[in-house]
Design a protein around this nucleic acid. Structure first.
Lengths: 182, 182
DNA sequence: ACCTGAACACCGTTCAAGT
DNA sequence: ACCTGAACACCGTTCAAGT
């Protein structure tokens, strides 16, 4: 009768679903607790703080990024990372805010490193930072637009944003291609 | 006797100083009000919401970015933007969070556009997104490190981060250089 | 092992009313 | 024009205690 018990994984999964439904500003410990039919304090048995909980959520968001393999190309990997970030509402911001204690982010960066071969390791980090910045900004704009608080009234900014993404990736791809042949 | 009156500009200036002192998580309307020796509700005469106040702060942060001029080079402009973002604690995150209703960000992007000449306009946006993402991540890590919650214990990550920044800028510079000659 | 109950020290925002 | 006072509906986190 007294609502089922939870563990780290189930709490994280529920948090991710709630994030996608209500967005990061409304993802509070109290609301998550309500969702789990539990008192807010119960969450602190599973996680020491909200920030650590969010880090676990960030890991899940990046879980769909493929393992490091030498076969793929930069555009594919960068797109996979972007898709993972955009798959959940405010996903990029969550990953960004917990990036310092990166767990899942490490894997994404390793995959980028692998695809860049023997290019400067700093380049893989730069690509990741670009994708993360781009995705965060994109979701920021999506949210502002839904609230109706945008300065310029572009009809469909999505197409432009896709061009920006590919312009960035093309730049990184071009530089990385310089090395192997040389 | 009853503490001097304020206007939009003085409130914004105080908010920026407070941001630099205590960081974004502790920059509350109530704390800012205390700083101004005023009731919290007084702030809402000057700004309709905290978000709009932060947008004004973001504008100030980017104010030091030079006006669009054809003479400069990409590295200089990108560095100026990064320096502006890093000049105040959590500056990059503030700019990022109010980017959707960009006012100050527009100028920074125009300056990038100018320096990139006739290159694809999407490239200027890509550079801006890279610099913003990079700077946010850098400040994030600085904060996490000061709290002592970092996964890896690098001695001095600053040098590495500078290499990442320049690796990114080099990629964009290389691609932009392709166009004019062709 | 996992949760409740109650408390502590906070938030952003609104609105009538004051000067 | 600019601010006070009081309220509303929230926050994250701690900690003793329960089962």
């Amino acid at each position: 009768m007294t609502a089922q018990r939870h563990d780290r994984d189930s709490v994280t999964a529920t948090a991710l679903r709630l994030l996608d439904r209500v967005g990061l500003p409304d993802l509070s410990m109290r609301r998550l607790a309500t969702e789990l039919e539990v008192q807010p304090s119960a969450l602190y048995w599973h996680f020491p703080s909200k920030q650590v909980l969010l880090a676990a959520v960030a890991d899940r968001i990046l879980a769909s990024v493929p393992e490091p393999t030498a076969g793929a190309d930069l555009t594919a990997v960068a797109s996979a990372i972007r898709d993972a970030l955009l798959a959940y509402r405010d996903g990029a911001e969550v990953v960004m805010s917990t990036y310092a204690m990166r767990l899942g982010a490490r894997r994404a960066q390793d995959t980028l490193q692998a695809v860049l071969g023997d290019a400067d390791p700093a380049l893989a980090d730069a690509v990741f930072e670009f994708v993360l910045g781009h995705s965060t900004l994109l979701q920021q704009r999506m949210h502002a637009q839904s609230v109706g608080a945008v300065a310029d009234a572009e009809a469909d900014p999505t197409a432009d944003l896709d061009r920006v993404f590919h312009a960035g990736i093309r730049a990184f791809a071009a530089v990385s291609a310089d090395r192997p042949p040389a």
